[in-house]
Amino acid sequence: MDTPRKTVGLLGGAPRGTPPRGKSRRRTDLTPYAFLLPGVALFCLVVAYPLSRSLQISFYDWAVVPTQESRFIGFDNYLRGLQDGQFWLSMANVGVYLVVTVPGQIAIGMFLAVLLDARLPARGLFRVLFYLPVVTSWVVVALLFKYLFTTDGGAINWVLHDMLHLVDHNVPWLQQRWTGLLAVCALGIWKGVGWSMVIFLAALTGVSSELKDAAAIDGANAWQRFVNVSLPAIRRTLLFVIVMLIIGGFNVFISILLMTEGGPAGSTEVPLTYMYKQAFDFLDFGYASALSFLLAIVIAVISFVQFHLFRDDAIGARR
């Protein structure tokens, strides 16, 4: 990593030139650590310790009750995970979720951001309205969507079947794989679109109006101005949103747990719900921990790839 050399290092923060006495020198050396301590302690307590403990558990046939002995089984849990079709199905499902919700949130978020960037009556009100789902509770809206997508008597089926007569029977939305995933994706997009909208909106406000005016004078229409002026200007923001949405997408949990419970027959399971089931339904904490590390490896690989794309883009932008 090419960290700028000019920055004063954490170690040896005292300015050179004035040779300090031993005693005061030591004090300055310790000061930054004293400031770091609370943060580091908290990090160790709530992140590092559980993480390493979970790594340890993943190598054991873990006994839930402390008085019973856990058996060390090496990489058995990991091998089991690699051969577990249900785990890979859950990975495929989260893949579907990402493929649908990430572009969905970006496209709709961008569309709304462009609209609300223009001078519009009651612009503030619309901004609040579209952002509202972001701040609502996942549990509440997941239950709400569950009722919307209920087979008999759900609002969606009422519209499709009773009102518009588009289908000749009630669609069992949450009772089969693809429609179930679709419903969950719909919730994901609805809930997330406000967030990407706000980020895009902030970036769009920063796009120089002179550039846009210049393009307009050159005869570019609105679409051309968007594609050739605004979009390149907010490119970095776009990449940031993509990275955040992908990371967030892997964490999809509450909506699946509440809307389909990973069912029917495990067909809408995602990694987090599957792990949860292994740990808290089947008490197989070792296996659940191993799965969580397998997932972490997958996310690390994806992040690594993204990081490289990011860097290349940064270089490209500089040129």
């Binding site: 310790y49 403990r53 340890q56 008085t67 019973q68 002995e69 856990s70």
Partner: peptide, 22 residues
Amino acid sequence: VATALILGAAACGTGGGAGGQS
């Protein structure tokens, strides 16, 4: 050192030490 410390802390106790109530 920090990693080792954390791992060391985590490594303590895989159960069974409490003398098997059963």
